[in-house]
Simulated assay, not measured.
Amino acid sequence: MSTVIVFGPTGHVGSHVALSAHYFGAAKVILAMRDPSKPIPGLTSANESSHSFQRVKADLSDPSSLSSVVSSTGATRAFIYYNHASTDHMRSALEALKAGGITFVTFLSTGGILPEMDLSSSLDPKESLIYWLHAQAELNIISVFGKENYVPVRPAFFASNAFWWKAMVPTGKIKVFAPGVTVDWIAPSDIGRVSASILVGGPKEGYEEAVYLVGPQKVSFAEGVRKIVKAVTGKEAEIEEVDGEEQVGVYTAGGIPGPVAAHLVESFGKLEGLQATRGDWLPVGEEFEAQVRNVKVYTGREAQTLEEWIEEHKEEFAG
Rank of each mutant, 00 (worst) to 15 (best):
V200D: 03
A196Y: 00
W165A: 10
I102V: 15
V219S: 01
K98E: 11
E223R: 10
G234L: 12
W185K: 03
K227L: 13
R278S: 12
I5V: 12
K126F: 06
A135T: 03
V194F: 04
G206Q: 11
V211R: 00
F177D: 08
G42A: 09
L213I: 14
K38S: 13
G279M: 06
S122G: 05
A75M: 04
W281V: 15
V183W: 00
H16C: 06
V176R: 04
W164K: 06
V105L: 09
F145E: 01
V29A: 06
G14Q: 05
F7V: 08
H134Q: 10
H84K: 10
K218W: 06
L43P: 03
D280H: 08
E311Q: 11
S45Y: 11
L271Y: 15
K204A: 13
S267N: 13
L139G: 09
I130L: 15
L31I: 11
F24N: 11
H16Q: 14
N140G: 07
Q275S: 09
S50I: 14
I191K: 02
V4A: 07
F24L: 12
S143D: 15
P41A: 13
A21P: 01
D190L: 07
V265A: 08
I5E: 02
S67D: 07
T305A: 04
S65P: 03
W281Y: 12
Q247M: 15
P152Y: 05
E138K: 04
G180P: 01
R301A: 15
T76S: 14
V229F: 06
F104V: 10
M90H: 05
W165M: 11
S128E: 14
K218T: 13
S65W: 02
V6G: 02
E95T: 13
V200F: 03
L129D: 08
I198V: 15
E272W: 07
T3P: 01
F104W: 05
L108F: 03
A187P: 00
V176G: 01
S160T: 09
G111D: 06
E289W: 09
A178P: 00
T233W: 01
A162P: 00
E240Y: 10
E245H: 07
G255D: 12
F158R: 05
E315W: 08
P41Q: 11
P36Q: 12
S52P: 02
V292P: 00
G215S: 07
F268I: 02
V219C: 01
W281S: 15
H12S: 12
V4I: 08
P257F: 14
K38R: 15
G300P: 02
R226D: 07
A210C: 05
E286T: 12
E116T: 15
